[in-house]
Design a protein around this nucleic acid. Sequence first.
DNA 1: CGATGCGATAACCTATACGCATCACCGGCG
DNA 2: CGCCGGTGATGCGTATAGGTTATCGCATCG
Lengths: 304, 304
Amino acid sequence: MELFQLRYFLKAAEREGFTRAADELGISQPALSRAIANLEAELGQPVFERQGRRVALTDAGRLLQSRAQQAVSLLEEAKSEITDDGESGRLRVAAIPTIAPYFLPGVLREFSRQHPQSSILIQEDVTENLLRKCAQGEVDAALLALPVPARHLEVEELFEEELILVLPAGHALAKKRTITLKDIEPYPFVLLDEAHCLTDNIVSFCRQSSFHPVAVERTNQLTTVQELVALDHGISMIPAMARALDLSDRRVYRSLSDVRPTRKIALCYNPYRFQSKLLVRFRECVREFSRKMGKKAKAGRGKG
Amino acid sequence: MELFQLRYFLKAAEREGFTRAADELGISQPALSRAIANLEAELGQPVFERQGRRVALTDAGRLLQSRAQQAVSLLEEAKSEITDDGESGRLRVAAIPTIAPYFLPGVLREFSRQHPQSSILIQEDVTENLLRKCAQGEVDAALLALPVPARHLEVEELFEEELILVLPAGHALAKKRTITLKDIEPYPFVLLDEAHCLTDNIVSFCRQSSFHPVAVERTNQLTTVQELVALDHGISMIPAMARALDLSDRRVYRSLSDVRPTRKIALCYNPYRFQSKLLVRFRECVREFSRKMGKKAKAGRGKG
DNA sequence: CGATGCGATAACCTATACGCATCACCGGCG
DNA sequence: CGCCGGTGATGCGTATAGGTTATCGCATCG
């Protein structure tokens, strides 16, 4: 039994197919077939059931998958610990979709400048999956919005940002000098899918003010929400960081005058796993960047 | 990083030398040197300090040793679980030196008869080391004498056996019809080294009767004790199972008439590790054999 | 100061993992 | 119902990598 066989096996199990797995591993399909066959020969029994073009794990396969996973991560982590020089290395950073495109690029630009030898892998997923990946060590750090149901994970609040009302350029409300919560209550909302925590943020904010926003449309990208608002499908609320990237004049953004809906951005990581110098520095970098962002937000708020 | 490299590395670390390790691994010394060199190249730093002919682990080496150990055992265990058919397989059985030669052969003969495809590795060591090996999964089961300071280990008492007085054939006591504890108090003892628990058994038994045996000689083999007794260097106490193998007429064995010193034999294993069918059957076999042994002991006691 | 033992290095060898070509099989579809 | 696209298995030549033998360098020790 050799590690490369186990890595191949794990990829095949993950991808549920030899061809796809071989592709991702950068080897040919026959090479993978042979590697698995040798592994099975050593174990004395198959790890995959071959039913036509379908491959599924056998009981033995499932057992091996779990153990091999552990062993491989253990050794990967050991390698990281040993080669940890604070400069070179790989960092796996994740963020929820409503943060990733607006916050990560800035942080990454700064971090890459400070640590040119490091390589960073980005993943984007919803909160629930990110927490799981964080717990299992599949990602080193995750950026998400509070609250998070995270046990055994370290959650560090970074900053609070406003959720701003977004309206089509010609909307009636856009002409008002001040907009209150009561004003927006009658209008239908364009919201993200329910899997996104931003939806929860908005809905729970509205609920505090005892009204329930009517969602006329649901999408899974904030950009789509903005476009739909421009097309007058409804109004919505957008995190301040997403506004900054919106250069279009078909939409206008307004803060509410009576209340201030916000979301809290946090950094999450698994303190029980090895904390590489690179990871520690990344966290510092994120904190630093968040402080700057906070200042800019305060300065900008005056201009509204 | 490949498993064979880690196995090589672990052996080299264990043996504290490349030549010895390569020898035990069944490869040549240059092969080992190169494997380690490649490993170090991948890690970007040495795992061994080479000070002349001495090799010592570096900090990185120690870290890798611990992790590699875990990973290798994990995968070995996984393989055992998968290939566990209750017949073929390897079992690592250990016993303390005062049990191994007298009890193990009988059990092993019986077990090998029932499971001809299995292979059994025997280890002999003192209680302390056996418990450590049991805990770390280096042995699957250990036979030892109570009491044992075992936490997180399952300890199953098997039977109790008498410690019998052994005297040189012409000894004054040998002529007496009955021998009491008071009778033996004046005579010097031949004992095993202090590392052996049999010594503790004997000493603590004597202490209960408020006398401390004087050791004129200490050896580390029971056979040597018996020979020294025959040479009139002193008297001693020997487990009943060791008496059964003594065919010489230069020694005589006597039970004490007023008290009955004993030791309790127990089987120890790690319940947190995977229990292969073979291991479960071995434990059954040991229990069964112990029952027979107990019966024989009782039957024989009348004649004693 | 030579003998000895151990690790590193060089040169060569071979086992094996790989890629390519191809086969065999299943499933979908006209 | 037969063709075809896709997937895994197989055969074969090759190249890489791990193994061996021979030898060197360098400590340690009598």
